[in-house]
Each structure stands twice: as structure tokens, then as C-alpha cells.
């Protein structure tokens, strides 16, 4: 029999797979021609990747049931990484526009 915990894990897995497909759709080349720099797509897919990583850490790795310090460290790492990547990308865009 499936417990509430099993059901939660299944929902998490479905959400993660769904977000992956959404991310793929966002980045998919919907028109022919060469790929071009695209800040909205980049911001969207990198933010979704950070969100997915957070869900994996909180739910699959059970950090949500861990002491607050661990949750804060993992969240701080993800946020810092995301902001660094988006910041570097934005600076690069500024130079090449």
C-alpha cells in the first residue's frame, strides 16, 4: 500500500520531470536558423535548474527535515551560484551588445 510519504515522493518526481520538460521546451529551437544569445531563456532555464536542485535537496535528500543550518547552507550555495552565473552572463551580454 502506498503511504503518504511515497505519494509525496511520486509527486516530487512528477514535478521535477515536468519542470525538465518545460525547461527543454523553453530552450528548444522553435524556429530554424542559428541559435542566438537570449537572456530571458538563459535566466529562465538557469533559474529552473536551481529550483530543481533545491527540490532534490529538500525532498529527495530530506534536507527539509534537517536542522535549519543545513537548509540555510544549501539554499545559500544555490542562490550564490545562480546569482553568480546570471551576473557573469549579464556582464558578458553587456560587452557584446
Amino acid at each position: 500500500m502506498q503511504t503518504a510519504g511515497d505519494k509525496r515522493l511520486s509527486i516530487v518526481w512528477i514535478v521535477l520531470s515536468g519542470v525538465t520538460l518545460v525547461s527543454w521546451w523553453i530552450g528548444f529551437d522553435h524556429h530554424t536558423g542559428p541559435l542566438r544569445l537570449n537572456a530571458p531563456i538563459t535566466f529562465g532555464v538557469l533559474s529552473l535548474a536551481a529550483l530543481k536542485s533545491r527540490i532534490i535537496i529538500q525532498e529527495f535528500m530530506e534536507a527539509r527535515r534537517a536542522p535549519r543550518l543545513l537548509r540555510r547552507i544549501t539554499d545559500a550555495w544555490l542562490l550564490l551560484l545562480l546569482l553568480s552565473l546570471l551576473g557573469i552572463y549579464s556582464i558578458g551580454m553587456g560587452f557584446h551588445l
Partner: peptide, 12 residues
């Protein structure tokens, strides 16, 4: 891998 996928395959 989730982050590698975004960086290599999907971002523009």
C-alpha cells in the same frame, strides 16, 4: 547533472 544540463544544452 541538472545544472550541467542547463548550462551545456539549454541556455543561450
Amino acid at each position: 547533472w541538472v545544472i550541467i544540463f542547463a548550462l551545456l544544452y539549454v541556455m543561450r
